[in-house]
Every structure is written in structure tokens, then in C-alpha cells.
Amino acid sequence: MTDAVTFRGVSRHFGSVKAVDEVDLAIHDGEFFAMLGPSGSGKTTCLRLIAGFEQPTAGSIEIFGERAEGVPPYLRNVNTVFQNYALFPHMNVLDNVAFGLRVKGVSKAERRRAAEETLELVELGGYGTRRAGELSGGQRQRVALARALINKPRVVLLDEPLGALDLKLREQMQEELRKLQRALGLTFVFVTHDQDEALSMADRVAVFAEGKIQQIGSAEDIYRRPSTRFVADFVGSSNVVPADLAGVGQTGQWASLRPEDIRLDAAGRAATVTGKFFHGRVTKLSLDIKGQSLTALIPAHEATPDIGETAYVSWDASRAHVMELEA
């Protein structure tokens, strides 16, 4: 099966800034793929490379087996949901959604029908005559999605699609996006800096840092078996500790140990409590074991020692993961 998007040694440099640096990547057909990373890590540039707004300075990009370098955005069968939606302010919702068909020369009656149908799909039936400015953030998001989907793209690109929404709406949209993607069987590529979002929504996640991909894998892979210190720390703020302390690997190696895998255990090792934060569901303890600082998340119903006291903690060595040696 042909992959939806393939990057081979793709770089995009802006002067001396290596926004994207020799990235290899294969996004499978029908996959929900997340590009996760802090700002400036190259994830958005990668998305723009797929959309065609940027051209690679080196390497090759294929979209469903066809070379994409030099092909302008308007000739690519991919559509983007922009970060701030970028709805056309001088058009109503229906005209916004129908825009892609209009520039292709589809008749007015036909594109109206298609636009109304697509609006139904995103549960905005009957909103056609409203202006973009009259809609709430969540509704604009749906219009932007409908505007992309009406063109029947083979790949849908989403740039921080939920960034501007409040938490509750965000969770609802996450679910809907996921459902829609499954129902339509399309390839979704979405960029986010929110690791929860990436882990909960995506089939596979690529973690970006400084223009390079640190790790590509399933959500569980990335979380349980981070390959680098950066991934361990960025995704779920893991403890990065010497492997022998974690009880795995060999001296000189480093291991990732998730804060929620550390538990209070009277038979465990002694640690000094240096900080204590109540988070509702859990209590976060900052610990110090012989100069090595650790973070532990303890279920809130357990009694926890106070700052300055000694906590006894243990963990399953099988939960710790030895990482590749790297900077």
C-alpha cells in the first residue's frame, strides 16, 4: 500500500535556521498522525511542506507516491484547517465552505448542495447564512473543517486545530475529529504542542525537537518507551534517572521512570520530600534520593508525608525504560 505522505531526507532551512533538518517520515494511508513538539521544533514547517506553502531546501516529498516538490498548494489534493481557522471574513458560512468548489468551476446549485451537506456532516446544518464573525470558536472550527472536507482531500492537515478552544469544548472536538476521521477513512495529520491531545487522538505520534524527529511510534510506545531524554521529558514529564538507580540496564545508561509508576511503599527506599502539590486526583511529590531528584504522582486518597519528612517509595523495574544514549 502506498503511504499517504513520504519525506526522504527533507530539510527546510531559513538562512542559518534549520527549521526542518533531514527528516524521514512515512504517514500511512487512513492514519491519524500527530506531529508533537514545542514551538519552533519544525512541526508546523513540516505541515506547510505537505500543504505546499513551503518548498524543501533538500530531500524529496511524495504524496500518495507522487512527487510534491514544486507543485503549488492549489494543485495538491490536501487541505488544511488553519490555526486561527482563516475563514474568509467577507463571505458567509456557506460561501466559505463552497469556496473550493467555486474555484474549480462547480455550478452554483451544485456547490450549494454540497456545502449544505458538508455543514450537516460537521453538525452545522442551517448555519449557512451566518457570517464567520457571528460564530463561536467551536463553530468556526467546524466551518474550517467543512471547508477543507468539501474538496474530498486525501490528506487533511490540521494546524493546532483545538488550540483556541477552552478545555471542555476541546475534549468534545477531539472525540468528534476522531470519529469523523474514522468514518471518512481519510488521512489526518495534525500538529499540536499538547502531548495529551497527541497521545489520546493519534494512531501514531512523531515527536519533534529542533527540526528533527526524535521518535515516531504509537502513543503507548512514545509514552512507555521514550527513545530519548527529550521525549521522556516532553511527553508526560518523566523522571530521567541513572539506569542502575531505576534498577534496569547498565551503569552509564539512563532510564525513564514515569512519576505515576512510583508508589509509596513502607519497604521501599528512603527519599526526602522536597515539595508537595495537591492536584485533585493526585498529589505530586518532589523527592530526593541520594542527590537524585524524582517526581512521583500519588493517588490523592493516600496519606503522603510532608515536606522535610522521609517518604519510602518503590517501583516496578519493568516500568522503567532504558533510553538510547544521546545528548
Binding site: 506553502f53 488553519f82 490555526q83 469556496f99 473550493g100 474555484v103 474549480k104 471547508r147 474538496n151
Partner: peptide
Amino acid sequence: TSGALIDAAMDLGAD
């Protein structure tokens, strides 16, 4: 006028 509007138009197939 946000540059994203122009990107959006191109993205949707407008030359």
C-alpha cells in the same frame, strides 16, 4: 488582512 487568508485560498485550490 491576515496572510493566512491567502494561504487558505491557495490551499482550497485558488490560483
